[in-house]
Simulated assay, not measured.
Amino acid sequence: MTESVREKEPSGQIPEFVQLAAERAARYLSLSVGDGGAPSAELTLDPGFGTSFSGNDARAVLRERFGIDPGFELSGEAFSAMVTLMLQPPPEDRAGRRRVARLVSQIETARWKNRYRFFPHANGFPADTDCTGMAAGALYGRGLLSAASLDACVRDLLQATAPTTALPGQARPSDDTILVPAVPLVYWEDDTEPGTGRRGRKHDAVACANALHTVQLSNSVAAQAAEFTGASHRYLADHLASGRYLDGTRYYPSPDAFLYALSRLCARFPTSARVLSNPLHQAFSEREATASAEALASRTSSALDIALRTLTADNLSRTDGQAERRLLLAQAQRGDGSWPACSYYRMGRFPVYFGSSYLTTVFALQALRTREHPVVGRARAAFPPR
């Protein structure tokens, strides 16, 4: 541990210090979820999340900066609600249940049949496999989506794969438009969603992991999903072993987002763990070697990255370094209980990044929940009454 960390560390009271940070974060989040659900992310052209702008201004910014109209409005988004529902522990009081209901209502505005969009309502932007995997999995995990509805979502995900006649590319392995047979594409190409056009054939490794997670939740569709599951596991293992993840993916700029997505698979599904666990442990150790405690102070690693690595370590049952990571997060917290906005996801065609203090805090709060100190992991981490 560095001297700067030692100087700030309350002697002998790390659990209490972290617990107080979790309580402040929970209160911040409880005040942030309004009648409309989770607050929408801000956008920026700076991966370090410098000057940002709202989704209401995004279309004008893109026209001015790149001379191209994206063809849809970027105001509002439902993805932050999906992430919150995935991460937040079950509420323990009536106020918490009301907030969950608001998040679910927000997510439902982004639903089209058995698919989910990034943006609520119809704005010309189609549903995608990443949002569908995230939303359906989170709703099912909370008992808010029936097994039959989950199966319907999974069957749609199985229809979004690259054709088996596609040939994996070797010349440009980092090109996400090179198709890999039976691996899910980001967007469907069946032209069934009204008012939307095709977005082009492309893969994204984090989106693939999120879709695979939800596909494996369905036992009744397992026989139909065998080819999907095997191809996706091979694709993810190759992406990990090649080191391409270090450059981020098309839609997720941080390598830690990919490692976290794989760790969710390993923690939940033995089939995934058999393929991915060992190389993921190695990749995590290598990632940690280049992202030490000094990184946060020098701003070369964001609070979101620290939170994602903490969650990854928990999913892999790794305890080494966890106390220090949580201490770093607690020290980086702002006075209102939040952490600064960080770039969690981005547009594919343009260098436009999405993030918010709310979204960083959702991940940070979950990362502060410790197995060693369950008081943080139970009611303290759930949203307290307003």
Results as ranks from 00 to 15, higher is better:
Thr129Lys: 07
Leu158Pro: 00
Cys131Gln: 05
Thr192Trp: 05
Arg115Trp: 04
Thr192Cys: 10
Cys153Phe: 02
Ile178Asp: 14
His121Cys: 01
Ala147Lys: 12
Asp128Ser: 07
Tyr116Trp: 14
Arg172Trp: 03
Ala182Trp: 00
Ala182Val: 00
Ser174Thr: 15
Thr132Ser: 14
Val154Glu: 05
Val180Ser: 08
Thr164Glu: 15
Arg155Lys: 13
Asp156Glu: 15
Thr109Asp: 09
Trp188Ser: 13
Lys113Cys: 04
Arg111Lys: 12
Ala162Pro: 08
Thr132His: 10
Arg198Tyr: 10
Asp190Cys: 05
Val154Met: 06
Leu150Asp: 01
Glu189Arg: 13
Ala148Gln: 12
Asp128Leu: 07
Ala171Asn: 11
Pro184Met: 05
Met134Phe: 05
Arg115Ser: 09
Arg155Val: 07
Ala122Glu: 14
Ile178Phe: 08
Thr132Lys: 08
Val154Thr: 08
Lys113Val: 04
Pro126Glu: 12
Cys153Lys: 01
Pro181Asn: 05
Asp156Leu: 11
Leu150Ile: 01
Asn114Phe: 10
Ala135Met: 07
Leu144Glu: 12
Ala122Lys: 09
Cys153Thr: 00
Arg199Leu: 10
Ala166Gln: 07
Phe119Lys: 01
Ala147Gly: 11
Ala152Glu: 11
Asp176Pro: 15
Ile178Pro: 00
Arg198His: 13
Asp130Ser: 06
Ser174His: 14
Ala160Val: 03
Leu179Asp: 07
Ala182Met: 01
Cys153Asn: 05
Lys113His: 14
Gly124Ile: 04
Leu158Val: 03
Arg155Gln: 13
Gly133Glu: 03
Thr177Tyr: 00
Ala110Ile: 01
Ser149Cys: 09
Tyr116Thr: 00
Asp190Lys: 11
Leu150Cys: 04
Asp151Gly: 12
Leu157Asp: 04
Thr129Pro: 03
His121Pro: 00
Trp188Thr: 01
Thr161Leu: 02
Thr192Ser: 13
Asp175Asn: 15
Cys153Tyr: 01
Ala138Thr: 11
Ala182His: 06
Ala171Ile: 13
Tyr116Gly: 02
Gln170Tyr: 07
Leu157Tyr: 06
Ala147Tyr: 02
Phe118Glu: 03
Ala171His: 11
Thr161Met: 06
Arg172Ile: 11
Asp156Ala: 10
Thr165Glu: 10
Ala135Ser: 13
Gly195Ala: 09
Ala148His: 10
His121Asn: 10
Glu189Asp: 13
Asp130Val: 03
